[in-house]
């Protein structure tokens, strides 16, 4: 049996997941093995997202639309909260920019150069989620090929949409309101933080982030996300430049 990636590993952001060493000869079957752990971990989050959509007063099929078209889990959760209070579109745009800015760095190690054909490349960048990145980025120097990469992304996409739709239908059928379903998003960010910390054991970064977040919360509670992440990015750049000046060209 090929070793199976642990179910949680795809959520670790900066590192890749070791892929199955053996191939079955079928890109689809290889992709099922690659995507199984991450796909199953995404299901409960998708379900919670779906429940949140219908309990916020939206029709159930908006869960399907959000999940398939936006296809960025954490942004979808935030989007439900924003449209529920009729937030201005500019605020939605800024939130999308901030929450998904981390994807900018995925181009550094996602094997897009292995994906051939314009439609495949368009889909591959569209479906470049945390999970798709984490599964594929660790594969180098082995080659996965167009079919296996696209199948991994399609399987993850289908599981996410299915979970969200099932959750929305269940949420609509529930006779009572379930308060606190939105906690699934907090739990997701918490898990991602823990795994990102495990990957690097870097103490100053979380301390700096907590300070920046707290300062932003006190100064401008309404723009906490924008101000907090901007402060943190500026502080991190300053820190890196300072360290480089002090430590020479070691990094």
């Amino acid at each position: 049996m090929p070793p199976e990636p642990p179910a949680t590993a795809p959520l670790t952001l900066p590192t890749g997941v070791p892929l199955a060493a053996e191939t079955t000869g079928s890109p689809f079957r290889d992709a099922v093995v690659d995507a199984r752990g991450a796909g199953l971990a995404m299901l409960p989050i998708g379900l919670a997202f779906g429940v949140l959509v219908t309990q916020s007063g939206l029709d159930w099929w908006w869960a399907t639309v959000f999940a398939s078209v936006v296809y960025a889990g954490s942004l979808e959760f935030l989007l439900v909260g924003l449209v529920a209070v009729a937030a201005p579109l500019s605020q939605i745009a800024v939130t999308a920019l901030l929450v998904n800015s981390r994807h900018v760095f995925y181009a550094l190690s996602f094997p897009l150069h292995e994906v051939r054909g314009t439609p495949a490349r368009v889909y591959s960048t569209f479906a470049l989620t945390d999970e798709a990145y984490a599964i594929t980025a660790g594969a180098a120097p082995r080659r996965l090929g167009t079919a296996r990469i696209i199948w991994i992304q399609v399987i993850l996409h289908v599981l996410w949409v299915a979970g969200a739709t099932a959750g929305a239908l269940a949420g609509a059928a529930l006779p009572v309101q379930l308060p606190g379903v939105g906690f699934a998003l907090t739990a997701l960010f918490t898990v991602l933080s823990i795994e990102a910390f495990r990957a690097r054991h870097d103490i100053p970064t979380p301390v700096l982030a907590i300070v920046c977040g707290a300062v932003a919360m006190l100064l401008t509670p309404d723009n906490m996300l924008l101000v907090g992440t901007s402060l943190f990015a500026a502080a991190t750049i300053a820190r890196l430049l300072l360290r480089r000046r002090r430590g020479g060209s070691s990094s």
Binding site: L13, F105, R200, P206, G228, F232, L240
Partner: peptide
């Protein structure tokens, strides 16, 4: 950019935890 890509995700995730707790 490479160093930023290693340090930003953790901090942004922590700020997102704080932000989403505020919305609960």
């Amino acid at each position: 950019v490479r160093e930023l890509s290693e340090q930003l995700p953790l901090g942004i995730m922590i700020i997102l935890v704080m932000y989403s707790v505020g919305g609960l």
